[in-house]
């Protein structure tokens, strides 16, 4: 770990001010991703701004029937909150599918959005990686890429290639729920729809998201629609617990008289951000609950998917996981 200084601001404007006045400073919340990466020298902030004393741990009802989750609320306190459990069980399920009980007690909702890829080459300073070192190349493209992306990758120019995935479970559920991220920065407050928060690698794979420098996430807003009757979160991984997703699927459905009236499907483990395709979801509206319908939506969601050798299995795996998640959400099959 490199040498760094430490500050513990007591309010939001001081925290934002710290990042404005100290180039190279970073916020630290739970520390579970940042300290891991600092020990590997992948992240080398010269100052840590500890935001844990800010009052951002509330969970509260908001206008229009939604729920506001404080950025510093831990993943565990969010997943086990009675209101989240009853109105947003998809979110609870997704959070509890991630990491371990200890890590969920530390990890914050804000920090989870910023967690970086688990790409082995990103972690290995001896290998090229455009995300870690812009322009150096991508170790994964022709390397061992079993955990890598199959959708929305950037693989045309060596200096901008990146086939990394975003590893979060929580974010897959937030994507399906159309959450909104609230931030405060040097220029004031703004809100970011979840679909615009993370980005595809494009020609700047070193940028994971659209946050501006100095901006602090203060809360995540959940809209009223929580899909608490018909939902599923499926996570496929190499061991049953305490492992990142190879593929995960979050589904929320609304069903009337055996017909689907609204559908959300978000995929994890397949792209640089949680993967949504509203056109594919729209195909389900007005349809009966049938495996054939589910399969055509799965095909549509995976349209254009591309494997890189070790990860090609993910294409078929994702389709099957989508069909299974839809069946579980529709209660045609018990939840797994």
């Amino acid at each position: 770990m490199n040498s760094f200084s430490y500050a513990r601001p007591s309010d939001i404007s001081m925290a934002v001010g710290e990042l404005v006045t100290h180039e190279g400073a970073k916020f630290i919340a739970g520390g579970t991703n940042l300290l891991d990466l600092m020990k590997e020298n992948v992240e080398q902030p010269n100052r840590l701004v500890d935001i844990n004393r800010l009052e951002l741990s509330a969970i509260e009802d908001i206008e229009d029937g939604g729920l506001r989750l404080g950025a510093l609320l831990t993943n565990a306190d969010t997943a086990y909150h009675p209101v989240v459990e009853s109105r947003y069980p998809l979110l609870s399920r997704a959070i509890l599918a991630g990491a371990s009980a200890q890590l969920r007690n530390m990890a914050t909702n804000g920090g989870n959005l910023f967690q970086r890829t688990r790409c082995y080459y990103f972690y290995d300073l001896a290998t090229p990686c455009n995300k870690r070192e812009p322009g150096s190349g991508c170790g994964a493209l022709n390397g061992y890429n079993r955990i890598h992306a199959i959708l929305g990758t950037s693989d045309q120019q060596p200096e901008t290639t990146c086939i990394a995935t975003h590893p979060s479970d929580l974010c897959v559920a937030l994507s399906a729920l159309d959450a909104v991220v609230r931030v405060t920065g040097p220029k004031g407050e703004r809100t970011i729809p979840f679909a615009d928060f993370h980005r595809l690698p494009g020609d700047e794979p070193w940028r994971d998201n659209t946050i501006q420098s100095g901006e602090l996430v203060t809360a995540i807003d959940l809209p009223a629609k929580g899909f608490s009757d018909y939902y599923a979160y499926i996570k496929i991984r190499d061991r049953q617990s305490y492992a990142f997703a190879l593929v995960s699927v979050a589904v929320g459905l609304e069903i009337e008289d055996n017909r689907i009236t609204d559908a959300r499907i978000a995929l994890g483990g397949v792209a640089h951000k949680p993967w949504r395709k509203p056109e594919a979801e729209a195909m389900l509206v007005g349809q009966m609950l049938s495996e054939a319908n589910f399969l055509s939506v799965a095909e549509a969601l995976l349209a254009g998917a591309k494997g890189y050798g070790h990860n090609t299995f993910k294409i078929e795996l994702a389709k099957r996981a989508i069909v299974r998640a839809l069946k579980q959400a529709a209660k045609l099959e018990p939840a797994s």
Binding site: Y6, L35, N52, L103, M106
Partner: peptide
């Protein structure tokens, strides 16, 4: 954070002591 050998209770909650700073 990958093994749990460092688990302690902080203010009653179990955490991995390797992934937090003492100063925090």
């Amino acid at each position: 954070g990958q093994c749990g050998a460092c688990t302690v209770l902080v203010d009653g909650k179990r955490i991995n002591s390797c992934l937090t700073l003492a100063v925090m």
